[in-house]
Design a protein around this nucleic acid. Sequence first.
DNA 1: GTCTATATACGGATAGAC
DNA 2: GTCTATCCGTATATAGAC
Lengths: 216, 216
Amino acid sequence: MKGSKTRQAANKSREEEVNTEEKIKNAAREVFHKNGFAATRTRDIAAAAGINLALLNYYFRSKQKLFDIIMLETLQGFARSLLDVFNEETTSFEKKIEIFADRHIEMMRQHPGVPMFILSELRSSPESLIQKMGVVDLILKTEFARQLRQGIKDGRFAPVEPLHVLMNLMGMTAFPFVARPLLKQMGRLSDNQYDQLMVERKKLIPRWLNAALKAK
Amino acid sequence: MKGSKTRQAANKSREEEVNTEEKIKNAAREVFHKNGFAATRTRDIAAAAGINLALLNYYFRSKQKLFDIIMLETLQGFARSLLDVFNEETTSFEKKIEIFADRHIEMMRQHPGVPMFILSELRSSPESLIQKMGVVDLILKTEFARQLRQGIKDGRFAPVEPLHVLMNLMGMTAFPFVARPLLKQMGRLSDNQYDQLMVERKKLIPRWLNAALKAK
DNA sequence: GTCTATATACGGATAGAC
DNA sequence: GTCTATCCGTATATAGAC
């Protein structure tokens, strides 16, 4: 049904706002990321896209189908780039943490709503959705995890469940974005000041994590 | 309008399910915590409370008003118990971290949906709501924060913005509950196994955090 | 106080003109 | 492809009997 449309997506990087389908997707991404599925009205998306409500259904058939597309793209775009870091064969364990913190935080600085979006939607979604993007399962099979286990065996790190390390790493990087309204208020910071802290954390987190791995 | 009802709340700990108003609030708390405001239908609450839909409006006037009550109570109950730890005059900085991690994690084990509930609702709420429960502002004025600054001044800790420490502490404790579906899948764990990790973290987080504070 | 029945509003989706 | 007008299900809220 949609395969009949002309495929001019190849050179879309040239134009400003491409075709209508892209306009709707861009608007949907923005609104969904900000408010989540349940709190989003298709009318808001249409308005943000500068088109009529009917067009949304013409292109995507339903709110749910449009959402599924946005969710899948968001999830994969997010996971993919992080897994790449963990799978890199030639970098050291410590270097992977540095690159991860830097890339992960930078990604979230560019798209501050994404972490909350992913986590809040995952809360109510069935496990099947998580498995659907099989990427997730593989994390403890990456070179990163192997290097961690090796480091423990060598006595360079204290014995610890790898998932704990992942929780610490992701917690330290992602939590400040998820809890931004709360933490910003706690520190009485402006948007700029808060963002500055995020930049600092790129360098600090690897240092902290490293120290923790050697603790006791 | 509601002040006319008899006040038998004093000895409510004795009964199983108290009066209707409490039954509705308990049901509302459960459903709101699980699904958030937008995804919750008043019918679900009524059903969970075992009463008719009309009664909900009779007691609380509107979905929004009922939600506001639940939100405020949840927020305060959560913040209060944590602030108490931070304000304690006689415990050391290190001891405060131990108590905080233990209490905070235990609280979330009992109410796993609460962290996600608070954060996801705060994302869309205006800042005024956060300020309304003024508790939040005070965190960097607690004895905990003072002791941290003093420790830095004495050279026991590396210089660091106190808010960073708060982000690390809360990130390490709360993130595993917020990102539970994702992390559980990553580790291929059962509910029990995951819970076991949470218990371990009570002891581990203070150790890690302490090491991080001395790093470099 | 608690129910059944119903009004009212809102949001997703479609019909049909252009 | 894009619009206006409208339908229709669902959810909140109220009326009114008991």
